[in-house]
Amino acid sequence: MKIVIDAGLCQGHARCASLVPDVFDLDDDGFAIVRPGREHVAEDDVDALLAIDNCPEQAIRLEPDA
């Protein structure tokens, strides 16, 4: 699966980058990005699900790999 961040929903709460810093980072304005090379995970990936469960705006989701 691929981790997708909806930039229209992300408001920079920074929960993902705080809880899973290996996978999520923040841009200069504090909005979430996925670290390059870390986009693809299993659908039960614990770290990705932790970020999804704690994103206040529900801006993070998993999409099937293309």
């Binding site: 920079g12 709460h13 920074a14 469960d53 704690n54 206040p56």
Partner: peptide
Amino acid sequence: RTKNRHLAFGGGIHRCLGSNLGR
């Protein structure tokens, strides 16, 4: 608790600007 989407800092475009500092 591992699932905690609380609203202490609000949400949307008015999400507390200082939330990271406050935390």
